[in-house]
């Protein structure tokens, strides 16, 4: 039941506790419209990675609701594997499968989850590999590629599933500085093509360039959720101002 006008991701009062004493997410409410790029930032331990992992139910949450393309994650009737297959996810540490060649990494879920034939999956995988500029590495294993190359493969692997939205969990945090650009370039291109994206990152340059909105989190709460121009122009909270002054200082 896809709804053309409605938001792709809707979160309402999402709360999560690791233990009765420790609440990681407090009443988080926000949404991501179709084709919108939302950057989530905040100090470490603020819950931003946890929040984004709740969107495809990788992390359970105890209160609130999340809907993706109109489908309620907490509904017992929801086929979570099927829903997850439609949401691409890119991790901080790439998480390519080390024992599989690059092409096999790209084909595995296409074949096992979407039921595509090997030829079909291979054609799709090769096209995406070409798109991220790594065609000549098709036959290699992940351990034989640099971090930046692995992350581009990871993005291609997620795109091979024809996702309706992409989640990025600190995609450049584990990369050497000279490799960050090659990954961001791929993400900028994706954003410009109209992909719905939720990106946890500290790359404020990326946020300025392509984000529509910026969410600032601290201690499990969404402190600011505003248009990019407003956020960079005059963040209302002291906490966000302090955070920005620290990461934009150099």
């Amino acid at each position: 039941m896809s709804n053309a006008a409605g938001p792709m991701i809707e979160m309402a009062a999402v709360s999560k506790w690791y233990s009765p004493q420790f609440q990681v997410l407090k009443d988080c409410t926000t949404s991501v419209a179709k084709g919108e790029v939302v950057v989530v930032c905040g100090p470490s331990g603020s819950g931003k990675s946890t929040l984004i992992k709740c969107v495809n139910a990788l992390e359970p949450f105890q209160a609130g609701t999340i809907r993706v393309d109109g489908i309620n994650l907490s509904d017992p009737g929801t086929d979570l594997p099927k829903l997850r297959a439609r949401i691409g996810m890119v991790f901080q540490h790439f998480e390519l499968f080390p024992h599989l060649r690059i092409t096999e990494n790209l084909c595995l879920a296409q074949e096992k989850v979407l039921g595509r034939s090997r030829d079909e999956a291979m054609a799709k995988g090769k096209a995406l590999l070409d798109r991220v500029g790594l065609s000549e590495h098709a036959g290699k294993f992940p351990g034989q590629l640099s971090g930046g190359q692995q992350q581009r493969v990871a993005i291609a692997r997620a795109l091979a599933m024809d996702p309706i939205a992409m989640l990025f969990d600190e995609p450049t945090s584990a990369l050497d500085p000279e490799m960050i650009t090659e990954v961001l370039d791929v993400m900028v291109e994706l954003a410009r093509e109209g992909m719905t994206m939720m990106v946890v990152t500290h790359e404020m340059g990326f946020a300025r360039k392509v984000a529509h909105r910026v969410i600032f989190m601290d201690r499990g709460e969404i402190i600011e959720d505003r248009n990019k121009e407003e956020f960079f122009g005059s963040p209302r909270s002291d906490r966000a101002q302090l955070f920005l002054s620290k990461i934009l200082a150099h």
Partner: peptide
């Protein structure tokens, strides 16, 4: 831990994640 998460995020079932991702390594 991210290996199992990556398998799950791609839509693999728990059994598939073990069979194709975790156990081979």
């Amino acid at each position: 831990r991210g290996q199992a998460m990556a398998g799950t995020a791609l839509g693999l079932t728990t059994a598939q994640t073990y069979r194709y991702v975790l156990l081979p390594m």
